[in-house]
Computed example of a mutant assay.
Amino acid sequence: MNAKQKLEAQVKQQSKAIRNRVSDTYQDVDHSVGTNLVRVHPVKTGMNHALAPFIANIAVYLGTLIGALLLYGTYAKFVPIVGRFKSFAFLETAAILLSIIGSLFTSWSITGFMGLGGSQFANLWLNHGLEIFGSLNFNLILVLLLGQIGTALNIFLTMIQVVSGAGMIPLVTLNSFFKGAHYISPMFYSIQADFNIMFGGSQAGMYLGQLVLLALGILIVNIVIVTFRKHQPILDFHQLS
């Protein structure tokens, strides 16, 4: 055996010895740390539970998308008769009544399907009432500005809210566009409040407060639009047929 072969043999022996020492030293490391997960607000197994806040809120929001269009049609027809401010007051009164009644049936359905309690029902009623009122006015912004054609743009905004609402994907994982969009999304605050109401949490009040502020801000925007837009365009579908 020449010198080169002897050197290679020594290197192999030393490498083997080092690996053995390392193995002996760290053989218990993989068992040295244990984990004990404590779920503070557990969600029942099943996508029907995990996605319940998202599904409930998107269903309500889609209803307000159509509701805003119908309310606008009535508003525009009454403007020449009673004036735009009185007609807008009637519109908002109808929106409030729809919010109270619509959220009552929505909350009753959620409570029954998920086996929730009376206090949760009351909070869900409040949350979805605010969501319906805020969403109706949110969808009215473009409709008051552009007429019925604004509904097409509202559909695009709905798709943005589906993502920025953070019902399926956590907010921290979204890109900067959707993180910015969630601030003006009624669906986001309602979804997050639903998570806290349905599964437990201490932030339901915070989200409900933010939803109230957002709804008031949207209402003020609509009042400004009504003040400066004196003519309300409305399509005559008989002429299109």
Rank of each mutant, 00 (worst) to 15 (best):
A95R: 10
L65E: 08
K86Q: 13
F78H: 15
I58H: 00
L98S: 08
S87F: 00
G102I: 01
N48E: 15
A52S: 12
A76Q: 07
V79T: 15
N57M: 13
I100Q: 08
G115M: 03
A68G: 09
F54S: 07
T111A: 04
H49L: 01
A122E: 14
R84L: 00
L136Q: 13
L104S: 13
L126Y: 08
A56K: 02
F121Q: 00
G115H: 03
R84G: 04
N127G: 02
F133E: 11
A89T: 11
I101G: 02
I132D: 15
A89M: 05
N57C: 14
S135Y: 07
H128F: 07
F113H: 09
F105A: 01
F105T: 09
A89W: 06
I66F: 07
G67A: 05
W108Q: 06
L71T: 11
R84Y: 04
P80Y: 03
N137E: 09
F105P: 09
S99K: 02
F133Q: 14
R84A: 00
F90V: 11
F85N: 10
I132G: 14
N57D: 12
I55W: 00
G115S: 03
A56F: 10
M114W: 01
H49W: 13
F121M: 00
F85V: 13
G83Y: 08
F90Q: 12
T111D: 02
W108K: 07
T111G: 05
L124W: 01
G73T: 15
I81F: 11
F54G: 05
S119W: 01
F90W: 08
W125T: 08
K86N: 15
T74D: 15
M114I: 10
F78P: 14
L71K: 03
G134L: 05
L62Y: 06
I58N: 00
G73H: 02
I101F: 04
L130Q: 06
S119T: 07
F121W: 03
G134V: 09
L97M: 12
K86R: 14
T74E: 15
F88L: 01
T106C: 04
T106W: 09
A59P: 10
G63N: 10
L130E: 07
S107N: 06
T64V: 01
A56Y: 10
I66E: 07
H49R: 08
G134Y: 04
A94V: 13
S109Q: 07
A94M: 11
M114V: 04
S119N: 03
L70M: 11
A122D: 12
G118M: 13
L65M: 06
G73D: 13
L124V: 09
M47K: 11
N137T: 08
T93C: 01
I132L: 10
S107R: 03
N48V: 11
T74I: 12
L130T: 09
L65A: 03
I101M: 03
S99E: 04
L116K: 03
L71R: 00
I58E: 02
F133I: 14
L65Y: 04
G134P: 11
L91V: 04
F78A: 10
L69T: 13
P53Y: 01
E92F: 11
N57P: 14
V82M: 14
A76R: 04
L116S: 01
L70K: 04
L97C: 06
